[in-house]
Amino acid sequence: MNAPQPLHPGVNLDVTDRKSHEKASEVIFGFWIFLMSDLVLFAALFATYAAMSTQGIAQGPTPSEVFDLGSAFIETLLLLLSSFTFGFAILAMKYSTSRLRLLAWLGVTALLGAAFVAFELHDYYVMIVNNDAWPQTSGFLSAYYLLTGTHAVHVSAGILWMIVLAVQVMTLGPNPLVKLRLLRLALFWHMLDIVWVGIFTFVYLFGVAA
């Protein structure tokens, strides 16, 4: 037998868990198809935002008046770090026999994600209190809350999903099924970070620069 080949993109479980590895290719490709269709949803929201943020200001505030770049920067760092820690959770799952290490990295990731959502809710609160920027104020703000809100809902769902999987790791142990579920959640989480790159660039940075 030759050295195992990587069957799919992402961390392959080949060297440490051949049994999980053989099942991985199909479910992970299927999950990629889901991720891509999720991206299409975000693309539609981005397109709406692009049109609305220039033509749908009405009498409401402009993007540069309502956005706080400092807060967007902190959110960016939180989400980037959580992507990184999830990577280490997956490596702990692959190489370490101790469940504690995996659970610790998952816990850190979930906390960073929760901090991200909290910052975003705080942003909304500040915008509404200081600028009277309600979702119904203008087309621009409706599109803004819809786009960032959909992303925040995705992150929250990811956190919930992470808690469910952490319970499964504790009760069922890291068996092949649970491992494959964690691999898929990792893809979901990394993909949300990619969507956020689009949001902080085109919504926050471009909104303030233009």
Binding site: H8, P9, F29, W32, V197
Partner: peptide, 17 residues
């Protein structure tokens, strides 16, 4: 992000993705 977090590269096994 795709290269280092999602590990998509030009390798043969990744072509479909």
């Amino acid at each position: 992000h795709l290269r280092f977090f999602l590990h998509i590269d030009l390798g043969k096994s990744h072509r479909d993705d």
